[in-house]
Design a protein around this nucleic acid. Structure first.
Length: 682
DNA sequence: CCTCGCTCATTTTTT
DNA sequence: ATGAGCGAGG
């Protein structure tokens, strides 16, 4: 194969120096990645690099960027990859389609969804919107069936069942049997709730995350002209993190690649960590079966971590039975520090230790904060640490937990924008009206029915509706008037050539929301600042619709700046859930709260496959580290909240099952009773 | 019919 | 500590 490489290079006279930038395995992918290709890329094996060079190579070879589709796991990753591509090519790349599956599905549906009987101006519901709507559906169904809500699962549970069923393309009944067997006797009712939920979505022209994928697939499958058109457009398709795709996503790729048949997927079965949202590891394992002509590439050389760290990672993952056996081969040379296992007496000591060590790294060893991160299983594990970091004046951003766009006040403001865009947006209208006094469930329904009738049946616009035909209590009337006045005002803005979204946000805030914010929350000033950030972010958009879509599909976290135009990061540290740390690397990594029951999470203990996923998560966490790795856990901690007793559940099994020689034990808490240490560290 | 204040359970991971 | 759910008052 190497022969082709040189002749290829000589003939094309390329400007990019592939040979000195990539190793042989990587070069092979870059030059020979035509057709159906599976690239099995271990952690730290330079898979992003390989993808970036592959895209650059295609463009340099003369493929137009709009004939390339690059699917990534986050939109952030897509931005990073395209900007790196731009750097090596030293030219702008316009027209390349890149982003997450949801992002790309949205792009396709905005063009063609009318073919499926939806209007193109649909709204996208995020998970909590979807939950709200399931709750509404549940209300109707419970009433009709004469059941009490108490006897039914919570809306969030039903929502998750519906979602999993959609993403895995399995019937509700089998999802319930597998994931929520205690509700098995309610299968029929849940099925009806799902039906009702679908119906409301259809009526209100809204799509949830799963609909984006499912409808995109339906569109491609059932409308051959659209399929042909798009599949002809995409001469080359590249998919990153393929191990975390679900069946819908794999099928979408299959159809989009059905004309040119150039589908290159990259992934690592050992890093599959999203089965809870129906990611199916079979996609990657069966890729060669799905495409019998598939070429398989392997990237096994690890450029990231020291041999101690890799040794630890290999040692851990070999306890898993269900995956391709493989070992990461270290390449790195130089100073090697053994990973440290650090037991601390409790979460506060743990936080202090990490903070102290970070200070040392920073001041004594000159490690920039941007080269350090702290990872954990669950977002709330970092609370004590956040306190300590703030005390020590160490700037950090946290990824995981509540997202920026999911905060109540941001969702409130977005709801205002949504009803201006579409006054019949059920979820948004309910949210806005509930904020104001005098309007509850019954009054809301009355208003909604009235507006629906006037708009849908009589074809009136909001401006034309005579609301005096609706009898309402005084307070409700006042509240409604406020909202209507707002909608009319904003619709004037929308008629203008250049839509000023920040102005719409500020109008909603000044006219209505400011006073709500003041009594609803105890930190209104802080939240007001968030709303300013939102307005700032909105400046980049020229249509309300695209702004609203991105607000739902963008993964930004609180405190994280939206690096839309690749602004330089300042020197801040990252705290992150392991899920959010996927694909990233740091010189120094702390993995904290390695406590049995927390990590592995107690809900995964019952089934081997779930436990193995937790172990893969551990594997992902340790392979983020380039040079130094600290594994910490508190010996005792308070589970749940303070009314519960202190728990001594002991270190994670992921620590215990590692052989002693892969890390150094580091006991720094002199006040820790040694008997406890002896017991647990045995 | 709405709101407020009480009680109870509740914390995995996310596009 | 926070949120959801429920029952009593307004």
């Amino acid at each position: 194969m190497r022969k082709y490489i040189l002749s290829d290079l000589n003939n094309k006279g390329t400007k990019i120096d592939y040979i000195s930038s990539l190793n042989n395995q990587q070069l092979d992918v870059v030059f020979n990645g035509d057709g159906h290709c599976l690239v099995l890329a271990g952690a730290g094996s330079g898979k992003t690099r390989t993808l970036v060079y592959r895209v650059a190579f295609l463009i340099e070879k003369g493929i137009s960027p709009d004939n390339i589709l690059l699917v990534t796991f986050t939109n952030k990753a897509a931005r990073e990859m395209t900007s790196r591509c731009r750097e090596i090519l030293k030219s702008d790349i316009k027209g390349l389609w890149s982003g997450t599956f949801h992002h790309i599905a949205n792009k396709i549906l905005r063009m063609y969804i009318d073919r499926l009987g939806y209007r193109k101006n649909y709204v996208i519901l995020d998970e909590s919107d979807s939950q709200d709507l399931v709750k509404t559906a549940l209300g109707y169904v419970a009433k009709e069936a004469g059941m009490i809500k108490k006897d039914l699962p919570k809306a969030s549970v039903i929502q998750s069942i519906i979602s999993f069923s959609q993403n895995s393309q399995k019937p509700i009944s089998s999802v319930i049997r597998k994931l929520h067997s205690k509700f098995i006797h309610l299968t029929d009712v849940i099925g009806i709730v799902k039906y009702k939920y679908e119906q409301i979505k259809k009526e209100t022209n809204s799509l949830d995350y799963d609909d984006l994928l499912y409808l995109c697939l339906t569109l491609l499958r059932d409308h051959s002209d659209i399929r042909e058109k798009l599949a002809s457009k995409f001469r080359y398709i590249l998919v990153d993190e393929y191990q975390d795709t679900n069946i819908l996503q794999a099928d979408i790729i299959d159809l989009l690649g059905s004309v040119h048949k150039n589908i290159l997927v990259v992934g690592d079965d050992a890093q599959s960590i999203y089965s809870f949202r129906a990611a199916d590891i079979e996609n990657i394992l069966n890729f060669p079966k799905r495409y019998s002509d598939a070429k398989i590439f392997k990237l096994e050389k690890n450029y990231r971590s020291t041999r101690f760290i890799l040794n630890l990672a290999n040692n851990s993952i070999k306890n898993n039975r269900f995956n391709f056996p493989k070992e990461l081969q270290p390449v790195k040379n130089g100073v090697e520090i053994k990973p440290a296992l650090v037991p601390l007496s409790d979460p506060v000591s743990q936080a202090r230790f990490i903070t102290q060590r970070i200070e040392e790294l920073r001041s004594e060893e000159g490690v920039p904060l941007s080269e350090i991160s702290v990872l954990f299983r669950s977002a709330f594990h970092s609370v004590e640490l956040e306190v300590e970091l703030s005390k020590a004046d160490i700037p950090y951003i946290k990824r995981g937990g509540i997202r920026y766009f999911e905060q109540a006040h941001i969702k409130d403001i977005l709801a205002f924008l949504r009803i201006a865009h579409n006054p019949l947006d059920e979820v948004a209208l309910r949210r806005v009206l509930y904020l104001l006094s005098g309007i509850g469930e019954v009054t809301f329904l009355k208003i909604k029915e009235f507006m629906m009738y006037k708009i849908v049946k009589e074809g009136l616009s909001v401006e034309q509706i005579d609301f005096s035909g609706l009898t309402l209590p005084l307070r409700a009337r006042e509240s409604l008037d406020k909202v209507l006045k707002y909608i009319l005002k904003v619709q004037k803005y929308l008629e203008k050539e250049q839509v000023d979204i920040p102005a719409i946000i500020h109008t909603a805030y000044r006219d209505i929301y400011r006073s709500v914010l003041k009594d609803k929350f105890d930190n209104p000033d802080e939240r007001e600042m968030d709303i300013d950030v939102l307005a700032e972010f909105a400046k980049n958009y020229k249509s309300l619709e695209s702004f609203l879509s991105d607000a739902v599909l963008t993964e930004g976290y609180k405190g994280e700046r939206f690096d839309v135009d690749g602004e330089r990061e300042e020197d801040v540290m990252v705290l992150s859930t392991i899920h959010q740390a996927k694909g990233l690397e740091w010189k120094v990594v702390f993995v904290m709260h390695l406590v049995e029951g927390a990590f592995p999470h107690y809900r995964s203990l019952a089934r081997d496959e779930d436990l193995e996923e937790e172990r893969r998560l551990f594997y992902v966490s340790v392979t983020r580290a380039k040079e130094e790795l600290y594994l910490t856990y508190p010996i005792s901690y308070e589970a749940g909240y303070s009314y519960m007793s202190r728990v001594l559940s002991g270190p994670s099994r992921f620590l215990l099952e590692l052989s002693e020689n892969v890390y150094e034990k580091w006991e720094i808490e002199e006040d820790t009773p040694s008997s406890i240490l002896d017991f647990y560290l045995d």
